[in-house]
């Protein structure tokens, strides 16, 4: 696309981010150091990718989770929140434990979606090790199959407090 075409597109598109809903109640028990800035490491512990699509939408331009200080990062060393989706399969139980252990304190673990909470479709599957809370301590659970982007954003806002 030419630069002029791009400039026209930018002008025509304008702002697509929706107005921010009122701030939710901050999550109790989260270290105050994390207020205002939270880096998120996403771990797929055995998800069907439904939750991943919703996370992608939550960080897209419409819901724009980044405006509340949340950002997806590539390494657990940079992260403050481990966002876990899906039932924990036997193969992913140990990697999940290691990922949480590799995240520097203070940290929070968020279990996203019904599978991660232990009440989803695949609960009693033969390859399933259990819910996220069976493997690592969980600070916040987000219900839904899959949870809407607004619910993902709200959960992250409860951690950032913005």
């Amino acid at each position: 696309m030419s630069l002029r075409g791009l400039a026209r597109l930018v002008r025509r598109t304008g702002r697509v981010a929706e107005p921010a809903p009122p701030a939710p109640e901050p999550l109790a028990g989260v270290d105050p150091a994390l207020r205002g800035s939270v880096q998120v490491r996403h771990v797929d512990a055995g998800s069907c990718n439904g939750c991943e699509i919703e996370i992608g939408a939550a960080f897209g331009p419409v819901y724009d989770a980044e405006r509340y200080g949340a950002r997806l990062v590539a390494s657990p060393r940079h992260a403050d929140v481990v966002l876990v989706t899906g039932v924990v399969t036997r193969n992913m139980a140990e990697p999940l434990r290691l990922t949480v252990a590799a995240t520097p304190e203070p940290r929070a673990v968020v279990a996203l979606g019904d599978c991660a909470r232990g009440c989803g479709l695949m609960r009693d599957g033969y390859g399933v090790a259990g819910a996220v809370s069976d493997v690592v301590p969980v600070d916040l659970e987000v219900p839904g199959c899959p949870p809407e982007p607004a619910a993902v954003v709200e959960a992250l806002r409860r951690v950032t407090g913005r």
Partner: peptide, 13 residues
């Protein structure tokens, strides 16, 4: 962020 249609995290982020 603004040019991408986002609200953006603010200059102080």
């Amino acid at each position: 962020a603004r040019l991408e249609g986002r609200a953006g995290a603010g200059v102080g982020q």
